Amino acid sequence: MSDNERLVFHLSSGGDVVIKLRPDLAPGHVERIKELAKSGFYDGVPFHRVIPGFMAQGGDPTGRGTGGSDLPNLRAEFSREPHVRGVCSMARTQDPNSANSQFFICFDDARFLDNQYTVWGEVESGMEYVDALPKGEPPANPGKIEKAEIREAA
């Protein structure tokens, strides 16, 4: 597993978001994200929950916030990494071991989530395109991941 890999989301809000993967924090979750991205799972998937000052959530192909992949849920990989602007973390139900494909990107500090949600990456560039996503729960016309890919860092 390379520490040099990046997840790139081509967003409908205008550009590319480059995310540094953090296998040092959450190796299982990083492998899942990579597997889903490489399979095309995230292509065309909307951000169904976008709350200003908090976070943008996506990864549910139904766009309702209740779906996920056909893969088994993941065991929690909580860390001391803080939930701050640009941090990428997994969404889940009340069960800590229920993360599957949904994730969120923090707009701002959300330290109350620390040690309760699995951090798997951090935005290196393109945060302005996350900021530009249509807001709402769900947004009237949600922003989408047009394509997701894994690439080596330059």
Rank of each mutant, 00 (worst) to 15 (best):
L11M: 14
R85W: 11
V45Q: 05
I33E: 00
H10S: 15
F9A: 11
R22V: 06
R85Q: 13
H10G: 14
D70R: 14
N141W: 03
L71H: 14
R111D: 11
Q57S: 00
G59H: 00
G63N: 01
G15A: 14
F41L: 07
T93E: 13
E77M: 04
F9L: 15
D109V: 11
G59F: 00
S101V: 05
V87R: 01
D70I: 10
P134A: 12
V45E: 04
D131Q: 13
F54D: 05
E35P: 04
W120I: 02
V123P: 03
H10F: 14
F47I: 01
L21Q: 06
H10W: 14
K38P: 01
E31N: 08
N97L: 13
L113E: 07
R64Y: 05
R85S: 09
A76Q: 10
S12E: 14
V84T: 15
N100Y: 08
Y42E: 06
P96I: 13
G58S: 07
H83E: 07
P138I: 00
T62S: 07
C88L: 05
G121I: 00
K20P: 01
Y117K: 11
D43M: 12
S98V: 12
P138C: 01
S79T: 12
D60C: 02
G86C: 08
F112A: 12
F41E: 06
A110V: 12
G14E: 13
G53T: 10
S13T: 15
V30Y: 00
G126F: 13
S125I: 11
